[in-house]
Simulated scan of single mutants.
Amino acid sequence: MSVLSAAILFDAILFDLDGVLVDSEGVSNVVLVRLMAEHGLIVSHAEFMARSVGKSFAALYSHLEADYGWTRPESFDAESDAALAESFLSVREVPGSAQTLAALREAGIPFAVASNSRRDRLDIKLQAAGLADAAGHSFDPSQVGGRGKPLPDLYLHAAAALGADIRRCLVIEDSPTGVWAGAAAGATVWGLLAGEHVHVGLDEQLTAAGATRLVHSHAELRQALGVENQAEMGKVTAG
C-alpha cells in the first residue's frame, strides 16, 4: 500500500494509548496487584492483566467485586493514585510508536489518541514516553460525559475533532473493549499485538471483537499503511 493509497483509504488514524503507544499495562498491573494484596485480594499478575487490559478502573473494580466479593477500602483510591502517578513516570513507548506518529505526520495523515485513561494519567504517560507532542490531539472520557470505551463516543469525538468521517478512520487497538468501541463507532479497526501485556489468545479475542486485521509491531503497522519510508527518512534526519 502506497502513502497515497493509505491517505485515500483513511481520513485519520485513531490510536488507543495503553499498550498501543505506551507500554503502561505492565506498570499499572504491578502496582495494583501489590496494593490489592495489601488489602486482602490475592490475584496473579497474569489473571489481573487479562481482566484489566482496556477496561476503565470503575469497570475493573466492579468486576472484581462481582467475581471475588472484594470491595476496595476507602483509602484505596488515594493510595493507588499516588502509586500509579509515580510508576507512570517510568513508562516507555511501545517500540516504534514515536516513529509511527512521526511518519504519519510526515505523510500528512491526521491522527489522534483516544484513551480510557484519566486526563492527568494520560498526560503523564505521553510525557514520560516522549510522545508529549501528541497531547494536543488526545482525548479522554471526561470529554464525552464519562462515556468511555466500549461505548463509541470517544472515537466519534476524536474523529469529529479532526474533522474526519469516522467511517473513513482507522482505529488501532489492543483490547476487545477498544475494538468494540471502534467498531461500534463505524471505523475500521486493526488490532496491534506489540505491547508487553500481549497474552496467548489475545489475537483471537481481537478478531472476535471486530478487528479486521492484526499487526504485530509498529514497523508492520507502518508498512501496512505505506509510511515506512517516512519513518526511515525521519531516523536519518534525526541522526
Score class of each variant (00 low, 15 high):
F15Y: 04
S5G: 09
D120V: 07
G145V: 01
L225H: 04
D16F: 03
D16I: 04
Q223I: 12
A103H: 06
Q205A: 08
L9A: 12
D23L: 14
L14W: 13
D123S: 06
A160N: 15
A185H: 02
G191R: 00
M1Y: 14
V30F: 06
M233L: 09
Q127R: 10
L35M: 04
V31G: 00
S138K: 10
F139E: 06
Y155I: 06
T207Y: 08
S217N: 05
E196M: 05
A82P: 15
H39W: 10
E74D: 14
V236R: 15
H45W: 07
H137L: 15
G69S: 10
R119K: 11
A37E: 09
L122A: 01
R105K: 05
A50F: 07
E196H: 11
G130A: 14
A135W: 03
F76Y: 09
V189P: 03
R72T: 02
V94T: 01
N116L: 13
N29E: 03
G130R: 15
L193P: 02
G148Y: 00
G178P: 00
S75Q: 14
G26W: 00
A66C: 05
V198E: 00
A132N: 13
G146Y: 00
A59K: 15
H137S: 14
Q143N: 14
E93G: 07
Y155D: 06
S175H: 08
G163T: 04
G191P: 01
L192I: 00
P150T: 11
G96T: 11
D133L: 10
G96E: 02
L9Y: 11
L170R: 00
A6Q: 05
H137Y: 08
P150I: 10
G148D: 00
R167T: 15
A37M: 11
D23S: 03
M1I: 12
S87I: 13
V200R: 15
V144M: 05
G145D: 09
W190L: 02
E173N: 01
S56V: 05
A161Y: 07
Q205C: 05
L202R: 13
P95L: 05
A58K: 03
L126R: 04
F57G: 06
R105W: 07
G96R: 04
H197I: 01
C169T: 13
V94D: 00
N229M: 07
G201K: 07
A129I: 10
A159R: 07
A59N: 13
R92G: 11
A129F: 07
D67S: 13
A231W: 01
A107N: 03
A6P: 10
V198N: 01
L156C: 11
A238G: 12
L9T: 10
R72G: 03
L60A: 01
H216C: 11
L131Q: 12
N29P: 02
H157L: 09
G226E: 09
A78R: 06
A98C: 06
E86Q: 13
E173G: 01
A181G: 09
E86Y: 12
E220Q: 14
A187Y: 07
S97E: 00
A6T: 15
Y68P: 11
